[in-house]
Design a protein around this nucleic acid. Sequence first.
DNA 1: CGTTATCTTGATAACGTTCAATAAGAGTGG
DNA 2: CCACTCTTATTGAACGTTATCAAGATAACG
Lengths: 248, 248
Amino acid sequence: MTSSAHSAEDKICPHNARQNCSSCRLSAICLPLALAQDEVVQLDEIVQRGRPLQTDELLYREGDNFNSIFAVRSGSVKAYRVSDKGEEQVTGFYLPGEILGMDGIGQNRYANSAQAMEVSAICEIPFSKIEDLSGRLPNMQKHFFKLLSQEIVEDQRHITLLSKHSAEERLASLLVSISARNARRNLSAFSFRLPMSRTDIGNFLGLTIETVSRVFSRFAKQGLIEINKKEILVLDIDALKRVASLAN
Amino acid sequence: MTSSAHSAEDKICPHNARQNCSSCRLSAICLPLALAQDEVVQLDEIVQRGRPLQTDELLYREGDNFNSIFAVRSGSVKAYRVSDKGEEQVTGFYLPGEILGMDGIGQNRYANSAQAMEVSAICEIPFSKIEDLSGRLPNMQKHFFKLLSQEIVEDQRHITLLSKHSAEERLASLLVSISARNARRNLSAFSFRLPMSRTDIGNFLGLTIETVSRVFSRFAKQGLIEINKKEILVLDIDALKRVASLAN
DNA sequence: CGTTATCTTGATAACGTTCAATAAGAGTGG
DNA sequence: CCACTCTTATTGAACGTTATCAAGATAACG
């Protein structure tokens, strides 16, 4: 088995397009708790489920016309933007149940490119439909306001991380985050495979690949984790959290 | 006159509570272009205009119950959050016409504290009223989705700035940003007063106060700007933009 | 007019980058 | 199946940008 991170979802169907929100095991993460049963059905009708994305395939490009937001059903996606300086900046990693593309609403163009880091199944939700639904269902409107707001808070957390925290704190913070997000999907919080490369991690954390590698080695030497390429075994989550200073 | 940045607004009324959105000269920035006249009136009815905030007075605290978002009518406000590490991070500066507090929607608590950097007049807009209005007026809903999304894009821009750009690039970028935001308010793009302290600038840009000071001096020596404490005279905006690498 | 805040400038040091070499896989073709 | 290349990751040494420490200078304020 190459990927422990998928086992739970894969039991049922890896990247199957035949799915609906009501039966999706990720709905607890993806959907508003406040949505009534019949509201979920209405949402379900507008969700499009295409063929899986292959590794490195682009879901959308920075500058593309914005039409839809996307939910990751399986696999994982990174978002990145290119500054005028030509520097690429990874702005987020999206795991199953998480939603991306909302940065496109403001300018009617995506502000990021989104790329699959492995074979991934994606739900596409046309935004015009969301606007319609939100106009009719207050719970739906509330949910999307909240989603957008939470992304703001996430990004501000990340600003703090980049601005005020050391390389060790940043990396520990990422590991704790991924661990927690795995736990939320009922996967192991202590044994998982990082879907992203060292380059992507460094880019996301504002570090070079060399620093990422060194800090990983240091963590391993200190007995906090065991590393085997992308496979991570967390030996001391509390220590990791301490290093992260619960650095949010 | 202590502040050139205020002259245009102050002609009419500095921090007057007797105002409405239809006549407010900032509405072009603050309000959706798409709003019809009668829709503006409806918005106007829910906007609360309190007494002005004094310098350093808090508009809200991180963790406070979220009820309203706020628009700056005059003066300026900074937002900052405290990480678990105890580090304070300035997440944004808000100038007249700009809206803050939207980070509170997601968790029903503000994720930042907001503090006036000078005497400031603020419009308070109860969020529940916005939700009501948005349910009835599609333009209003669209506007707030856009506002939230734009804040996300702004924050991601800032992430890139912190992650990939040098001290000079960061500071040039801030100066260019403030210059542009002044121009949008029909104030001078080349002569203005920075409402924030060096400490706040450094904190916002992920730099120490000493580095901020040094870079300012370097810019002055290079003939890009003239500095007199907080008063800035931009001598070569194109050079500044070049230094910023249009670093967004 | 003295006291406190804030800002500027200099000297030193640290953290992370850069440059460089090596290692370990993954994929390909003979 | 092994040799080959190409990519990705690891490790070391030297350097550089920015932080830290420290001292003055300037402005703000009672």
